[in-house]
Simulated assay, not measured.
Amino acid sequence: MHSSVALGLVPVLLALTACGNAPPAPAAPLATTPAASEEPPVTGSLAAREAASEPDATVEYDCEGLRINVATDADGDRVRFVVDGDTLELAREAGPSGRLYVAAEGHRFWAHRDDEARLTLPGQHERNCHRVY
């Protein structure tokens, strides 16, 4: 009697399988993380990404009445500031102490203490600069 009951269940099992009641298919494999050599996707706003590439430090100095905002790049290899509407970019050179930046045109900016510097512009006297807080 058991064999006839088993034979009677075969058509029912086949019908259930055809109706979509089959056991669930195995889950898809999980996505892998990108390889270390792949760069992560860019995130954040354009302004945030640009701000991240801006100079690390900007300091305002008063150089005997001439105010300048000196922006130092992240490596400390270059400074940039505006004088009389001209943007000057000076490269770091070896100096006696502090940080000396010069340009071929004769511009010099020498930050010899945390809050003191000297600025030399072609054809002008050397100016003593004090950091503005």
Rank of each mutant, 00 (worst) to 15 (best):
G65Y: 08
P11C: 09
P40E: 14
A15G: 09
N69L: 04
V82I: 07
T33Y: 09
A51C: 01
D77E: 11
R127I: 00
A36R: 13
E105Q: 08
G8H: 09
V132Y: 06
G98M: 10
A91N: 09
G95D: 10
V132Q: 10
R49A: 03
L121K: 03
P34L: 08
E64F: 00
L90T: 08
E93C: 02
T17Y: 09
L121H: 01
V79T: 02
H112C: 01
P41H: 05
E60F: 12
V12K: 05
G123I: 01
L121W: 02
R108I: 15
G20L: 08
N21T: 02
H107T: 03
S45H: 13
L46H: 04
S4W: 10
S4T: 08
S4R: 07
Y61W: 05
A91D: 13
A52F: 06
A18D: 06
L66E: 12
L46Y: 15
V5R: 12
V83N: 12
G85I: 04
D73N: 13
D75A: 15
A117N: 03
V12G: 08
H2A: 10
R49G: 02
L90R: 09
A27W: 13
V83P: 02
G8M: 15
L119I: 01
L14Q: 02
V70H: 03
A22M: 13
A104D: 14
S45V: 01
P11N: 07
I68W: 04
D56H: 09
H130Y: 08
L13V: 15
E105K: 11
D56L: 14
V12F: 15
S4N: 14
A51N: 06
E105P: 05
T120E: 12
A74M: 02
L46V: 13
A47Q: 13
R78V: 07
L9R: 08
C63H: 00
L14G: 04
P96D: 14
